[in-house]
């Protein structure tokens, strides 16, 4: 594990710097000194509130969601042996977002603020349970991708239906907000609810990561070498479902980060799918924290959604990667 350490250390340091920068920057810029004081619980109360209730939770939410998407993306790419896989491919993001939207639409969120995150997690788990059931029955990853495609299509269509018949513009805006992804106005409590699921899911993925290296050789060879793909597959789906579901409950659907980050780190870890998990997570976390700073500082009349920035920047990279892949094939 030694070879990956400098890369991880560098990325982790950059993440910390980025989170600090997120505390520093904003509509009322604070001095470095003031941020340190506020973090330590000293200084004027307004500055403490700005840091502890607004900027820090928001930056941590971006960090956490980014890390989740990066690790999950790298794990799914390892499992499916496809560099174009990401949580979205298996339909987990879409199903989870749909569940969150349903919670808003049927006003379940008014029963308790917890219903929204719980709904998103339930949606992700429903999708993953379906995938796990399929995964235990089929040996083909193509089947899994197709199921993911079906789930995404269904969720997308259902979302459109809900948006078309939304009773008031307010709920419509709410739902759009959710499906585009944002970490604005997240509290420490929101993070606390998502955190256990994210930790459990990511711990599972990181624990199983050496299996992805073996899977490079294909399932039959990996199996002959001592791996049990029939166990790795559902475990990966479960880990991804837990982490991504909880991540979506925190920030809505943010695409492409889980796809772009593993791509960037892969050459730096000799294309080892196992060793790409951690740096991919750290890089994705860094990217989202930086993107969110950009969203906050952008001189727009209404604040942009983080997911919009992620897609605007990530989608062209995705297309470019597909292009390059086609060229390089033989």
């Amino acid at each position: 594990m030694n070879r990956e350490l400098p890369l991880n250390a560098i990325l982790a340091s950059l993440c910390i710097i980025a989170v600090f920068a997120a505390c520093l920057l904003g509509s009322t810029p604070l001095s470095v000194d003031a941020v340190f004081k506020a973090l330590a619980g000293l200084g004027p109360e307004t500055e403490q509130v700005v840091i502890w209730s607004i900027r820090l939770p928001r930056a941590l939410a971006a960090l956490l969601v980014g890390f989740t998407l990066g690790v999950s993306g790298a794990a799914l790419q390892g499992l499916l042996r496809n560099p174009l896989a990401e949580p979205g491919v298996l339909g987990v993001s879409a199903t989870s977002t749909l569940a969150a939207t349903v919670m808003i639409y049927f006003n379940v969120v008014h029963l308790s603020p917890w219903m929204l995150p719980l709904g998103a997690i339930a949606g992700a788990l429903l999708a993953t349970a379906l995938l796990a059931a399929a995964a235990s029955r089929t040996r083909s990853v193509v089947t899994l991708i197709l199921i993911g495609f079906g789930l995404s299509s269904f969720a997308g269509a259902f979302m459109s239906l809900l948006l078309n018949v939304a009773p008031t513009p307010f709920t419509l805006a709410d739902m759009v907000n959710w499906s585009l992804g944002s970490v604005a106005n997240r509290s420490v409590d929101d993070i606390a609810l998502a955190l256990p699921f994210i930790v459990a899911g990511l711990a599972l993925l990181l624990h199983e990561r050496s299996g992805y290296r073996l899977l490079s050789l294909g399932e039959e060879s990996a199996e002959a070498l001592g791996l049990n793909p029939a166990r790795l597959r559902p475990l990966t789906v479960l880990g991804t479902g837990l982490a991504v579901g909880a991540g979506i409950s925190l920030a809505g659907a943010i695409g492409f980060v889980g796809l772009v980050a593993p791509h960037i780190v892969r050459p730096l870890v000799n294309h080892d799918p196992a060793r790409s998990l951690l740096p991919a997570g750290l890089l994705a976390a860094l990217l989202l924290v930086l993107a969110d700073i950009g969203v906050r500082l952008a001189p727009t009349t209404s604040e942009l959604n983080l997911g919009v920035i992620a897609a605007v920047l990530g989608a062209p990279v995705f297309v470019w990667l597909v292009f390059r892949r086609e060229v390089h094939r033989d």
């Binding site: 042996r81 496809n82 290296r213 073996l214 899977l215 490079s216 050789l217 294909g218 039959e220 060879s221 002959a224 070498l225 892969r266 000799n270 294309h271 080892d272 799918p273």
Partner: peptide
């Protein structure tokens, strides 16, 4: 066991593949 289908999903260095 060396199966008929010998795929390699990622361009790992030779030594890393052998180490599998």
């Amino acid at each position: 066991y060396l199966p008929q289908q010998r795929s390699l999903a990622w361009p790992l260095p030779v030594r890393d593949v052998v180490a599998l």
